[in-house]
Every structure is written in C-alpha cells, then in structure tokens.
C-alpha cells in the first residue's frame, strides 16, 4: 500500500487531519531503549485520558509500542513521540533519526513463512491503527510515522 504515504508533504502550515498541536494539548516524550516501558505506560494513560478505552486503547498502545521499539532498534536508538486528539481521534507521531524504514517492510502484505525471521512490528501496526503514514524526515534522514487510533 503506497496510497497513504504522503511523500515530502510535512509542512508545518498543513491543515491536514491529524496535524500535531492544532487542537488542544499535546503529550510529548523522548525515548531510548530503556524508556520503552515508561513511554508505553504514559501513552496508555494519555490515550485513555483523551477518550480511548477497551480494545481500541489496547490496539493503540500495541501500535505505539511497536513503532517506538522499531525506532529504538532500527532508527538510531532513540526518538520523539507526540500524542494528541483531533477531529474525534487520538493521533500519535513518532520520529527518529535513523536510516528509514525499508519500503518492503512498510508495504508487505504477507509475513515470512518462518518465525525464525524477525520483524513483525510494522506489519502488525498496519492492522492495529488507521490513517498511517510514513514520511522521510527533513533533509532525507529519519522517519516520521503518524497514525490514528481506530474508532472503537
């Protein structure tokens, strides 16, 4: 699926749905490997505070955890996370300074036959959230992943 990638379109003036900070308060956090657990717990509280519950909350937290873990393992070891509510949805954006996510990971619609191969995180989050976009960071380095929680 390439249709929901918005290559290069990440201007701050964009009024596109899910632009961070254009509505209400944002939750922001920096993370590295040792902070994965703490960030997940904070995201769970913040998303619940912004109205998510039940399976929608569970899936959103799983998705955030996978993107954060991906940034730690493949994206240079650390990153930034933003969370906000807009247009009745809870949004999350995770940015890192790593080499970027290979297109084959983003687009694949089948998993490897054996579980000895790694990497099910990206495949998983595509099934756990909506409106997901992968954007290369300013200057061609880093990745910005933005997505919204599913409606309950």
């Amino acid at each position: 699926m390439t249709g929901d990638r918005r290559a290069g379109d990440d201007t701050p003036s964009s009024r596109e749905a899910g632009e961070p900070g254009s509505d209400g308060s944002r939750f922001a956090a920096s993370f590295s490997r040792g902070r994965i657990t703490a960030v997940r717990q904070a995201v769970s509280e913040q998303a619940a505070f912004r109205g998510l519950s039940g399976r929608a909350l569970e899936d959103f937290v799983l998705a955030v955890n996978e993107i954060v873990t991906n940034a730690v393992v493949h994206g240079g070891g650390s990153g930034e996370l933003l969370l906000w509510r807009q247009d009745g949805r809870v949004w999350c954006e995770v940015s890192d300074a790593g080499p970027g996510i290979p297109a084959a990971w983003i687009d694949r619609d089948r998993l490897p036959a054996s579980f000895s191969g790694g990497g099910r995180g990206i495949w998983l989050i595509r099934r756990l959230c909506s409106q997901i976009s992968f954007v290369t960071g300013p200057g061609g380095t880093g990745t910005i992943v933005r997505f919204a929680a599913r409606s309950p």
């Binding site: 997940r40 955890n65 996978e66 873990t69 790694g118 099910r120 995180g121």
Partner: peptide, 15 residues
C-alpha cells in the same frame, strides 16, 4: 504485556 517480538519468539519456539 507482550510485544510483537515476544510473540514471534513464542511462535518460533513452538516452530
């Protein structure tokens, strides 16, 4: 709580 990699490791062990 179990993450995707943990789930993969469980499946791999069974495999």
């Amino acid at each position: 709580y179990l993450d995707a990699e943990g789930a993969r490791l469980l499946a791999r062990t069974a495999e």
